[in-house]
């Protein structure tokens, strides 16, 4: 990652912090309690933005980068790392969606969990992408792993609408979308609407920041893996050299002048002894 990218990450992180703090302040102190829901409605400044990030930003980005990885002309480990970072952050946000929804559901519906369409399909989505993370944990060659994970992400992604439809038919009790309802009329008013909009911005910024940081971690982990391989390779080489040296000095115990030629022979021996190890 270049210095400029690191700088951009820091700026986005700062913006995320500021907007999140503003959302908290507006949401908890400035906005009035809602008419029907009372102070419970304050969860609405957070829950829909989190769900938006999880369902659209994270998994959309993951699917996009998987396609770009699988397409030969744009194949690069960049897309693999980006997709993996997006899924990982997406899983966190999906879990948060379920938790915040559950916190809202307990006082509103009287239960932590109901088998409504949205809850069920979100839970399934979480399990789907947990599977992706499990697949990613399996050690493999980076290219092999990247291809596997790209396919897994795409397969999971095409499953999302089918899951949504089937679960929707299976049970429909959950309220319709508040902002993105079919008529696209905004049902939230005044300062509350502003706060909710800010919440969307804040959560999106948090998402972008987390993906950037996660990408950097992924990159560094790969680099450390490569470096460790090189270090242990050179250690083996050195080992081979000392073994070869010992062999030569054993073979020629009292021929001091032969030491220089012996060393030359040892260098020549190293690749062979390494080849033998493999």
């Amino acid at each position: 990652m270049t210095a400029r990218a690191r700088w951009a990450t820091r700026v986005i992180g700062g913006a995320a912090l500021v907007t999140t703090a503003l959302t908290v302040w507006l949401g908890l102190w400035v906005t009035p309690p809602a008419k029907v829901m009372g102070t419970l409605a304050r969860l609405l400044y957070l829950h829909p933005p989190i769900a938006w990030v999880a369902l659209y930003c994270a998994f959309g980005l993951a699917a996009l980068s998987s396609v770009l990885y699988l397409w030969r002309r744009t194949r690069s480990l960049f897309w693999d790392r980006l997709g993996a970072s997006a899924v990982e952050v997406g899983v966190v946000f999906t879990a948060l969606t379920l938790v915040t929804g559950s916190l809202w559901g307990r006082p509103t519906w009287g239960v932590w969990w109901t088998w409504t369409a949205r809850l069920t399909s979100t839970a399934l989505l979480l399990v789907l992408f947990l599977g992706y993370l499990a697949l990613r944990r399996v050690p493999a060659d980076p290219d092999v792993r990247a291809r596997r994970c790209a396919v897994a992400a795409l397969v999971a992604f095409v499953d999302v609408p089918i899951v949504a439809f089937s679960v929707d038919w299976w049970q429909t009790l959950h309220q319709r979308g508040t902002v993105l309802n079919p008529g696209l009329t905004l049902k939230v008013h005044g300062s509350m609407a502003w706060t909710m909009g800010l919440g969307f911005l804040a959560m999106t910024l948090v998402f972008v920041w987390m993906v950037l940081v996660r990408y950097r971690v992924e990159l560094l982990a790969d680099r450390i893996g490569d470096e460790e391989l090189e270090v242990s390779l050179s250690e083996r080489w050195a080992e081979g050299a000392t073994v070869a040296d010992a062999a030569v000095s054993l073979a020629l115990p009292d021929a001091a002048p032969a030491a220089s030629t012996g060393q030359g022979a040892a260098v020549g021996l190293v690749p062979e002894s390494l080849g033998g190890r493999r």
Binding site: L124, L128, L130, V138, V155
Partner: peptide, 23 residues
Amino acid sequence: ALSAGLRVRETLLPLLVLPIVAP
């Protein structure tokens, strides 16, 4: 095919397949 050649295939496959076929 996705889990082929992995040593953890037996445990990984159900986790991957079952949520997909939930519909």
